[in-house]
Design a protein around this nucleic acid. Structure first.
Length: 428
RNA sequence: GUGGGCGUAGCCUAGUGGUUAAGGCGCCAGGUUGUGGCCCUGGAGAUCGAGGGUUCGAAUCCCUCCGCUCACCCCA
């Protein structure tokens, strides 16, 4: 235990965690599936800075949202600039799109990222102060077919991971021209029942009536079931967009359900919003992926009017679900060979041989503590190697080494200069 | 930000007021003067999350803080 002074010991900051080697099999698996699906759909990787000008997030996510109001890690640097550790991935990608003139590329521009996300929240299962998201953004095309493609890609990603029993929730929250009328009617409706709503929802009534819809309080749910539905208030363009999207989803055999109370916590969404969560789990932190269209955001950030849609998934939550569903992930490959040595002359030979084998593309494990052969073979055993090379005085003198098959327990002498050749044939 | 549960070596667990805090896994070493997986023996490793208080005496009771966890809130 690391103890620095009385009463204090270093540990990872609250809500963060070390991802240890034993966990990395999941992370490697997820990232491999992520880059594979991106290759299939033609998405290219983009990396953006971990921190950005604070105003980028305040303007894109929305000043009135919980994320901006109380969850951002915002600080001043030594020159007085206000910076924020990114609380989501989309704003940075849009900023980069504008900054680098990506509107001159063939549209839509398809990008993906895999990045750490920071929010000051009270940690619990599936919710952290630093977590990781894999996300995709398709910028520069307003066709509902693109919505369908992004949703299909997200769905297929989970299928490829081996996750089962997921449900896809879909809704449309309209655009700037039709949403105000919808919000008015929501306000009117809930105002009639104001006294029956929970305190939080009374507050939401004036500020953000959309959020009342997904209140989980038993007292509020019955009202939300009879509340005006956004899809009934869509303008002609939004209604047609939603209609065509549904047809494409059916065409692609995607088992979606329209959820009229699905709203998102970020203000930039327009038209299509969707969420993917394990069936039957309503808890907010059960959602493993979510996304939607944000047709006004790029213009809002100083670019030309550019429709776009994106999707993001929380990697920690994926790991959680992979474990919960006991999905078998491929184990990390072990070393090909362990080299054990006895005595200082043999140690020289061992080091040279290790270097030579590694240059030949073979992964080598060995330990340098001049330990007993028994101890070294014990370690070879727990390392899981198929073969061990044993070098002692006899081998140094004869110029050959003992090659031991760890499964069979058989061994034979091999000339030193043939070891690489023999091992490459023998080891998978 | 609110409320509940929890915190004993790297991991899991016993111990709920009384002499050097017990065991399992793992680690290290020996049993084999050059041979792993099983077995046996030994060793290292814990200021019992931290700080303060009650008491002759605290891992055990009380307070505060930190962390984990669950439910809210919200989000991936």
């Amino acid at each position: 235990m690391l103890r620095v002074e009385e009463g204090f010991l270093y540990q990872a900051p609250r809500g963060t965690s070390d991802i240890l080697p034993g966990e990395q099999v999941y992370w490697g698996y997820i990232r491999q599936k992520a880059s594979a699906i991106c290759a299939l759909y033609g998405y290219q990787r983009i990396d953006t800075p971990t921190f950005e000008d604070a105003r980028l997030f305040e303007r894109s996510i929305g000043e009135e949202t919980d994320i901006v109001e109380k969850e951002m890690y915002t600080f001043e640097d030594r020159s007085g600039d206000r910076l924020t550790l990114r609380p989501e991935g989309t704003a940075s990608v849009c900023r980069a799109y504008v900054e680098h003139g990506m509107h001159t590329l063939p549209q839509p521009v398809r990008l993906y990222y895999d990045a750490a996300i920071f929010r000051y929240e009270r940690p619990q299962a599936g919710r952290y102060r630093q977590h990781h998201q894999f996300g995709v953004e398709a910028l520069g095309d307003g066709d509902p077919a693109l919505d369908a493609e992004v949703i299909e890609m997200a769905w297929q990603f989970y299928v490829n991971l081996g996750l089962r029993g997921l449900s896809l929730n879909l809704n449309s929250i309209g655009c700037n021209s039709c949403r105000p009328a919808y919000l008015d009617s929501l306000r009117d409706y809930y105002s009639q029942h104001r006294e029956s709503l929970c305190p939080d929802c009374k507050r939401r009534l004036s500020r953000n009536p959309l959020r009342i819809l997904d209140c989980k309080k038993p007292s509020c749910i019955p009202f939300s079931e009879r509340a005006p539905r956004s899809i009934d208030y869509l303008c002609r363009e939004c209604a047609e967009h939603f209609d065509r999207l549904e047809r494409y989803l059916v065409l692609l055999n995607l088992p979606y359900v329209v959820n009229h109370s699905l709203v998102r916590g970020l203000d930039y969404y327009t038209k299509t919003v969707f969420e993917i969560a394990p069936e039957g789990e309503i808890a907010a932190q059960a959602t493993i992926g979510a996304g939607g269209r944000y047709d006004d955001l790029i213009e809002q950030l100083g670019g030309k009017p550019t429709p776009a849609i994106g999707f993001a998934t929380g990697i920690e939550r994926l790991v959680r679900n992979l474990k919960k569903q006991k999905v078998a992930v491929p184990a990390n490959p072990s070393h090909a060979v362990f080299i054990a040595y006895l005595g200082q002359d043999a140690k020289d030979v061992a080091m040279k041989l290790a270097s030579h084998l590694r240059n030949s593309g073979l992964s080598v494990a060995l330990t340098f503590g001049d330990r007993s052969l028994k101890a070294q073979l014990k370690q070879a055993n727990s390392t899981g190697v198929q073969r061990a090379v044993i070098i002692g005085d006899d081998e140094v003198r004869s110029g050959a080494v003992m090659l031991r098959d760890m499964d069979k327990g058989e061994q034979e002498m091999i000339p030193l200069d043939k070891v690489a050749e023999v091992l490459s044939q023998v080891v998978a």
